[in-house]
Design a protein around this nucleic acid. Structure first.
Length: 283
DNA sequence: GCCCAGGAGTGTG
DNA sequence: CACACTCATGGG
């Protein structure tokens, strides 16, 4: 089944390939393959037009992609607001199409607990291992992300064997504590409350809670700070200190759209490390 | 081999 | 509060 949608501005390469989501893969022809719910989807971009292809019988797939890309965001307003920051203003023109994604809450929670102290290629490998081992087969070599019931069948020993390391016990703990009802309740909670509740969960600290708030629950004011963000904040804003202080700085400086600011800065800092084009410069 | 990774948990001063 | 240490493992 084919579908078409219009999102502007959007850059699939930036958005799906920058480490927000770990399950989308770039094909040799420049299209992207990923899984939303139980549907395998292929997306190809031509300027602001995105054409999609999915397995027959896919219902609401188009809407799922629009949600993934947060097509409803008033991106002009967001970027106009963030451009008031002179540091961000320097580079945002080249990252206009970088969007925050909206992921499934459960998949996001599990993925970012796995993401602790690992690099992105390895995170992708771990997430993929969970899907192949515990998810449902929906196409040739394509597996859905396991829901709570499916993942509950995993033992810590099995998970360790899949290469999760010390994260194995966190995953079984999350299966015990987080069900559909809990997620629904969390989805109705404001950012600060949500964050506090997430931090109570095993394997979830401040940084993971902020990632899950932003990418899973869509809280745009959330500003996750990992090692790359620490570098960016020190280099570009002269800000150093514990998480709490950096988070307070970001809230003051970037306000309700801090999440977008974070993604611009994060992406720039990683590009810089790869000695590629660096669009933000020191003040 | 070496260094590092979208950190968290726990203990100590 | 801040800091130090450990945790398990693979990617570059």
């Amino acid at each position: 089944m084919r579908f078409e949608l219009q999102v502007s501005p959007v850059d699939l390469d930036l958005t799906l390939g920058c480490g927000q989501t770990f399950r989308w893969r770039l094909n040799p022809d420049g299209s992207w393959s990923g899984i939303l719910g139980d549907q395998l989807i292929r997306l190809k971009q031509n300027r602001s037009r995105i054409t999609g292809e999915t397995t027959p019988g896919g219902r609401h797939v188009r809407e799922s992609v629009l949600e993934l890309l947060r097509a409803q965001d008033d991106i002009k307003r967001i970027q106009r607001t963030l451009r008031r920051d002179p540091v961000l203003a320097l580079g945002m023109k080249q990252m206009k199409g970088l969007r925050i994604v909206k992921l499934d809450e459960w998949e996001c929670l599990i993925s970012y607990v796995l993401a602790t102290y690992a690099n992105i290629p390895r995170i992708m490998k771990m997430v993929d291992a969970l899907a192949v081992t515990y998810g449902s087969r929906i196409a040739r070599e394509a597996y859905s992300f396991p829901d709570r019931d499916q993942l509950s069948k995993a033992t810590p020993k099995e998970l360790t064997r899949l290469g999760l390391g010390y994260r194995a016990n966190y995953i079984t703990g999350l299966c015990d504590l987080v069900d559909e009802q809990r997620l629904h309740s969390l989805s109705k909670t404001s950012y600060e409350g949500l964050r506090k509740e997430l931090i109570e969960l095993p394997g979830v600290g401040e940084k993971v809670a902020d990632c899950v708030s932003l990418f899973g629950f869509g809280k745009l004011e959330s500003f996750p700070i990992d090692i790359w963000m620490e570098r960016a904040l020190a280099r570009l804003y002269g800000q150093k200190g514990p998480y709490k202080a950096l988070r307070a700085f970001a809230a003051r400086r970037f306000g309700e759209y801090a999440g977008y600011a974070q993604e611009y800065l994060y992406h720039n800092e990683r590009m810089r490390a790869r000695k590629q084009e660096c669009v933000f410069s020191e003040q």
